[in-house]
């Protein structure tokens, strides 16, 4: 699973441009399930288990990641961009980016030329430009076009029992879902690898309509704030304490019975102790006439940055908890 996670994080899939990620996923699930792709680029798969399920269950992970989109090119050959999804300006400054095969950096005023006040405050994001080393608009337009996506690069590295990489949100969910599909399953279930989560939970809306499930599980990554200086009450969830299970966020009030069943599973997990953020559950639970929904999230520090940090054991436990909930819901043991 971790080899697959590494390879997934090394692929670029900014929202609306997820094809490289989707193609990779198909190469890994081919032969282990039936699947099709839909008009938006979602992969919808059916995993046949040993037994028929009493509930139609959809397990979802999103393929896209936050990044940048090129909007125009200046006369000097610098690229203007907009953020795709939520990215803090501090994470943009002086970063290496990749636009397909083209390398670039986000250039700005060096620290020596900043006034005292400028040194303390972040610049406005719209004052930053990508520098691909082109010296004119014509030269730049020969290499990139408005609408191309850029990712802030960040290599996959192990830090003790932790993993540092870009796009752990939500390649961790994708890696878990791939491993569930590649394993034997006790019960039938549906899986969706969905596009455009970071721009408004859009792919999951279409996928949920197509599958028309009774129940759904979103496999996600969520903010861990267990960093130096954070108050205990503000940590949301902690690395190493198992996957976070949500009761409520800004997009969803979760199914209480599923939430309780997850916490009582005996598998190491923790409640997501804040009403903040949102994920594909927001689309899944409102699909058609309503869907009972659970979110299982890998705690992730510095989410939406090129250096996300997550715990290996948390990812393993998220996979175990997902398998446990699939069996429980599909067998009817979890009511």
């Amino acid at each position: 699973m971790f080899d697959i996670l590494r390879e997934l994080t090394e692929l670029d899939g900014v929202s609306g441009d997820e094809k490289a990620v989707s193609d990779y996923i198909i190469s890994k699930i081919e032969g282990f399930c039936e699947y099709k792709t839909d008009p938006l680029g979602n992969i919808i798969a059916f995993k046949k288990g040993r037994n028929r399920s009493v509930k139609k269950l959809l397990v979802d992970a999103h393929t896209d990641e936050v990044g940048l989109i090129i909007t125009s090119v200046t006369a000097d050959g610098f690229l203007k961009f907009s953020a795709v999804g939520g990215i803090d300006t501090s994470v943009l400054m002086f970063r290496r980016v990749r636009i397909g095969k083209i390398n670039g950096v986000i250039s700005g005023k060096p620290v020596h030329l900043l006034s005292g006040d400028e040194k303390k405050k972040l610049p406005k994001a719209d004052s930053l430009y990508i520098d691909i080393g082109a010296s004119s608009r014509e030269e730049a337009l020969g290499l990139v076009r408005p609408g191309d996506r850029a990712v802030i690069t960040g290599g996959y590295t192990e830090m003790g029992g932790r993993i540092k990489a870009k796009a752990i949100d939500d390649r961790a969910g994708c890696a878990i879902l791939i491993s569930l599909i590649r394993s034997e399953s006790e019960y039938d279930f549906y899986a969706s690898f969905t596009v455009q989560e970071e721009v408004g939970l859009r792919g999951a809306k279409a996928a949920a309509f197509t599958v028309a499930p009774d129940s759904a599980i979103a496999l996600e990554a969520t903010t861990a704030a267990d960093i130096a200086g954070a108050a205990e009450s503000q940590k949301v969830c902690r690395l190493g304490d198992g996957p976070a299970v949500s009761f409520m966020d800004r997009a969803t009030v979760y199914d209480r019975a599923y939430y309780s069943a997850a916490l009582e599973s005996g598998i190491k997990c923790q409640p997501k102790a804040a009403v903040a953020g949102g994920n594909n559950s927001g689309s899944l639970h409102l699909s058609r006439g309503g869907v009972r929904t659970l979110a299982i999230s890998v705690p992730c520090r510095y989410i939406h940055s090129p250096s996300c940090v997550a715990d290996r054991e948390d990812i393993e436990n998220a996979a175990k908890l997902a398998a446990y909930m699939i069996n429980g819901i599909c067998s009817g043991n979890i009511k």
Binding site: S90, M93, G154
Partner: peptide, 12 residues
Amino acid sequence: GGIDIRSLPARA
């Protein structure tokens, strides 16, 4: 030496 600390968060 001089470092722009605004650009440090989430830097590896």
